[in-house]
Nucleic acid binder design. Structure first.
Lengths: 135, 135
DNA sequence: GTAGGAAGTTAGGCATGCCTAACACAAAGG
DNA sequence: CCTTTGTGTTAGGCATGCCTAACTTCCTAC
């Protein structure tokens, strides 16, 4: 329960698994490798670590599933990603493709406090007027 | 001249050296190690790499200096740091200490485009009106 | 059933980046 | 001088995270 030291890399695996299983797909090693653009062997290795930490369940040669704990963590990571992406695209007007890449990296470097502040900022400037004029 | 692959870690060394030499200090291995909170041996090693890449000049047992190229790169890195810090503190109102830590990490993950957009945003919302109306 | 190919794993290797321990050098004081 | 103290380097080790190559397992189609 302690704030498990889940590296940026492992967070990426969790996020990928969440996205895959959200799409109905059962999250196989090959799919994860494809999404993350890594060798399958690397995925197998990472899954071993994630399983040790109780974040993933994975029988040999079987599909991969998030545990409850892993799911919660993955959702957190994905939220970060989306908040940051939203900010980059909607506020800064960064090109969506670039923003997507940036979000992938930034999501691992932003403190919780900054994330909160970012959410607050978006609530102020987004909901208040999703089309707020700038002319 | 090509976009040298200078890792985040090496960028930190450059930034530290720039900050130290800006303070009059001659940037010694010990100082760099202290600033970055690393072992001196690690600094020596990194300096070797930086020297190979022509970013730093460093005679055995002597002080460390940035080359022209290294200086330019270090300034770029430092600028990124300051822009991000400024944004976090002035716009998001993140606690300065937390913001400082975040900036150290974020400066390595943000694309050039996002940096530009961030600068534009700050120019709009900072200089134009440090008290911009939000009512 | 059995031969494919696809999926998954294992083994071994490599780069980065950090560490500690031990050694070499330097500069200053007695 | 020569010893002491701090600075710098070298050597060796370790963790992470990736890779390729070779092997095993699975599944499907014949």
């Amino acid at each position: 329960m302690s704030p498990l030291p889940v590296s940026a890399s492992l967070q990426d695996y969790l996020e990928a698994i969440l996205n895959l299983s959200a799409n109905g797909e059962p999250a196989r090693v090959t799919d994860i490798a494809a999404v993350l653009n890594l060798a399958k062997a690397s995925v197998t290795q990472a899954l071993g670590v994630l399983q040790e930490q109780g974040l993933v369940s994975h029988d040999r040669y079987g599909p991969v599933a998030l545990t409850d704990q892993g799911y919660r963590l993955a959702v957190t990571v994905k939220n970060r990603h989306e908040v940051i992406l939203n900010f980059l695209v909607e506020v800064l007007r960064v090109d969506p493709l670039v923003a997507e890449q940036d979000a992938c990296l930034l999501e691992h470097s932003v403190s919780s406090q900054t994330m909160e502040k970012l959410v607050q900022f978006l609530e102020r400037n987004n909901s208040a007027g999703s089309r707020m004029r700038e002319e």
